[in-house]
Simulated assay, not measured.
Amino acid sequence: MSSHDRITTPFTRESTAAEVIDGIDLTGRRAVVTGGASGIGVETARALASAGAEVTLAVRDVEAGKRTAADITATTGNSHISVAPIELADRASVAAFVAAWQGPLHILVNNAGVMAEPLNRTQEGWEHQFATNHVGHFGLALGLHDALAEAGNARVVSVSSSAHLRSPVVFDDIHFENREYEPWAAYGQSKTANVLFAVEATKRWAADGITANALMPGGIRTNLQRHQNANPEFQKLIEGAAWKTTEQGAATSILVAVSPLLEGIGGRYFEDATEAGPNVPPAGTGVADYALDPEAAARLWDVSLEMLAR
């Protein structure tokens, strides 16, 4: 961990997105939330809308997106909520979203994700969790770079997970071609990539007024766990877990997206609405050194560019 001052906030693990955004005016600001039609994505989008932002829900299921947009408008009075299709594991879909975007973008929330699913590969042969959780969001952020730069003081929110503690990015075999596939290791690797992305994006783009931070939302019961509901080990793991509501789960995303405390600050990892300290095993909290490693971050960026150039 570098010697920078850790950011602390008045918020706690119980704080909600509404509490974090209270008093902040986002009128005239534009935001994109991937996966904005389910789980914490809905509450992240709702909070941004409640503060006056123009919000685009970038989603796989456009019909679900439209229902969510209508619900957000009904609860916030903000009618500037739009829906656009995106399939993060499909490069053409990400490119189409980028091509359709016009004008500045102030906040990009890379929120969508798949978790601990059975082995699945994209048409390129990439492991699907890495392709969705990291590569799709990397391509999206890269494609929207000029829109973020145009906004000035833009922020990218990279939704990671404490599961990043399960695995660094295994550069020698990212796609499980030569090792046995393990769903949680694959998920963990993709979530480490989300943190490393924030580190390198901030390094490369801070001069354009763009900062990126990563976060762990906390344990929340959402559709993300659909592959785990029949897994007895997972059930045992969650029995004593302190679950958050989706409104509490979105709080740290909102902190990273809008808090004045993070002005000009990037490349960090937050949990429970504050900057996390280093992970000390066997604790399942904090951030792994390898997730903040600048060399790994630079290497991942290069590998990701190579993947997208194929």
Rank of each mutant, 00 (worst) to 15 (best):
N133I: 02
A96V: 06
S161Y: 01
K244N: 14
R67P: 00
I254A: 11
T211R: 04
E54R: 12
F270N: 10
D71M: 09
V59S: 07
H134I: 02
A207K: 14
A70I: 02
H164T: 02
P183H: 08
A250H: 07
A186N: 04
D25F: 02
V135E: 10
R155E: 03
G28R: 00
E54P: 01
A17C: 09
G28F: 01
G52H: 00
I21S: 13
S190V: 04
A18P: 00
L300K: 09
A53G: 09
L144F: 08
E275M: 08
P294T: 09
R226C: 05
E87T: 04
A74G: 13
M307D: 13
E239N: 14
T56L: 14
H164Y: 07
A273Y: 00
T245N: 05
G65R: 02
V114F: 03
M1E: 12
G35M: 01
D5G: 07
N223G: 15
L261T: 06
I265Q: 13
A131I: 04
A163L: 07
I220H: 10
E247R: 06
G264K: 00
T73M: 11
L237C: 10
T44M: 12
P294W: 03
P10A: 10
R91K: 12
I21N: 08
V159I: 13
G35Q: 01
R299M: 07
G264T: 02
E87A: 10
G249E: 11
N153D: 15
A49Q: 01
T222R: 00
P281S: 11
A64L: 05
S15D: 10
G52K: 00
D61N: 15
N194V: 03
A230W: 11
A84M: 10
D289C: 03
P260D: 14
A276W: 01
L292A: 07
A37N: 15
S38Q: 14
R30D: 08
G136R: 07
F171Q: 11
H227K: 03
E14R: 14
A198D: 11
H80V: 13
P282T: 02
A96G: 07
F234W: 15
E200C: 09
L142N: 06
S160L: 06
T274H: 11
A149R: 15
L224A: 11
R204D: 09
V62T: 14
T202C: 02
D90V: 13
A309M: 09
P118M: 07
R121Q: 09
S15F: 05
E275Y: 12
S161G: 05
W184F: 15
S2I: 07
I174N: 05
